[in-house]
Amino acid sequence: MPKLASDLVTILVTPQNSAVDIDGRIAQANGRLKASKVRVSIERRGGMLWLRGTFPPKPGALQIQPYRQKLALGVNANPAGVQHAEKQARLMGAQLNLKQFDWTDWLGDRVSPLGTVGYWVERYEQNYWQRRARSLKSQETWQSNYQRVFVKLPSDQQLTEQVLLDAINATTADSQPRRRTVQALAKLAKLAGLEVNLSELTGNYSARSVNPRLLPSDTLIAQVVQSIKNPGWRWVAMVIACYGLRPHEVFHTDMTDFPMLRVLEETKTGARFVYPLYPEWADAWVLHDRVLPPLQILGMAGNTKLGAKVSGFFYKNKLPFRPYDLRHCYARRCFEFDLGVDLGAQLMGHAPEIHKKTYRAWIDEATYRKVFDRLIYRSDRPLPPTTLKDN
């Protein structure tokens, strides 16, 4: 067997070197490059190798003068890849010294070193699914957090800073779509080696406070959910009201330990347990008898579609509140019942910071008044010193 082929076989059958070993080889190669006064270095980003140096602006870039940039080599971070990267670095360094550097020498079949938007979106999707197993949940995350953003980009144009800025500016400032767009495009730019800082464009979006006066009373909630004629949708509305679930979570529940309800792992924040703050509702409404509405998409649709079905039912039937209003009212109850922040957050399946910053903002003056009256007018409250009689 020829030596080159033998070496290749050795590399292929040898167990994968650790990242530490590869980083050591990269450091040695960069040492040799520096000693040779080559102005290009090798970097590892995940399992791939890149070159970094001060290069002329890429076609389509806004800069005029040379600046620090990265170039994806498209080779794996293994011993053979490091050898190839070192050779490429020396070639690139020689072109820079002779003032013969031209980005077209490094493009291959691409329009520019950045490639088109469509090219890099395809690369990002491939990379995404290499890191994640496909499931209903991961597919839904891809569609809502990334595909929804990427589909609005001009796929046949170069991926440039201006293309990203145009897409961001097309969204409303300080909004959830703006935040999602910036986050997705920042990751796309990073993969393409496009050095832009988009973080300042994210804005100040946070979950919006609901006007407490728009939240229904518990009396109204009980009257409305019990009046729903369809038994499946009635059960859905009652469970959301009683346990404060997200709309889609009602389809991923286990009532084995009733009245405690278990939310299964298919949901946004994973498995958790939830107790009814009104156990009387759970008993009177016979919630342990699970009755789902006749939806053909059950077992096939992602959580977003399931949640949309619930919201659609509330809207079409003109119920006087939305599904999430029932969740907000459960949060209000957590405060009224003196549940600690950590416990309330655990029951609702979100971080304590969210419970404090978001849900407590929905507590209206009347709720605070109830808590104040209960504390101040209890019989064992500490009393002030005896008031002196008037002279």
Rank of each mutant, 00 (worst) to 15 (best):
E43N: 06
D218H: 14
F251Q: 08
A89H: 04
V75G: 06
P247Q: 05
L4V: 13
V82H: 09
Q162K: 08
L383S: 12
A271W: 01
L98C: 04
S135F: 01
A207F: 05
E125Q: 13
T181S: 06
D364G: 15
K318W: 00
H288S: 13
I376V: 14
Y275M: 13
V40P: 07
A77K: 03
Q226R: 13
R374W: 05
D21H: 08
F150Q: 04
K305L: 14
S206A: 05
P352C: 03
P66Q: 07
R39F: 12
K99R: 15
Q183F: 05
D289Q: 15
K137I: 08
Q130F: 00
Q126L: 09
G244T: 00
L292F: 12
G47M: 07
W142Y: 14
R378Q: 14
P352R: 02
R213Q: 10
R290V: 15
V20R: 13
F101M: 06
L292Q: 08
K3A: 12
K268T: 10
G81Y: 08
P66R: 04
L165M: 13
T358Y: 14
Q88Y: 07
V75Y: 05
T104I: 13
L159A: 00
G302T: 04
V75S: 04
E353S: 09
K356M: 12
G244Q: 02
P276F: 01
L194D: 05
Y146V: 07
A167D: 00
L215W: 11
D109M: 06
G340N: 10
R179K: 14
K190C: 00
I26S: 03
M300A: 10
E200R: 14
Q157N: 11
D218Y: 11
A241P: 09
K187L: 14
W233Y: 15
W235V: 13
D325R: 10
N17V: 00
T256F: 11
L194C: 10
A237C: 15
Q28D: 09
A351E: 07
Y146L: 14
R131Y: 02
M255A: 12
L306V: 14
R234T: 12
D102Y: 09
G340A: 08
L295G: 09
V236I: 15
P79F: 05
S311D: 09
I26G: 06
Q147F: 11
S41F: 00
Q147D: 12
E266W: 02
V371M: 05
D109G: 06
I168R: 05
F321W: 08
K318M: 12
S135Y: 02
F273D: 06
A29T: 04
L4S: 12
G193Y: 07
P177N: 01
G60C: 05
D166K: 12
F337I: 07
Y124K: 07
L388M: 10
A308Y: 13
S18Q: 01
P212W: 04
F273H: 10
R262V: 11
T269W: 04
R262Q: 12
Q83R: 15
D325S: 11
G312V: 05
R52G: 04
Q65P: 02
V210K: 15
D254W: 00
G312F: 11
A331R: 09
L153C: 07
Y67Q: 07
A29V: 01
I26T: 09
Q143P: 00
G74E: 10
Q226L: 11
I363V: 12
S138D: 03
H328G: 02
G93C: 05
D342H: 02
R148V: 09
G232Q: 06
W103I: 01
R90Y: 02
D21V: 15
N76C: 03
A89S: 04
Q183R: 13
A301Y: 01
R178D: 06
A331E: 05
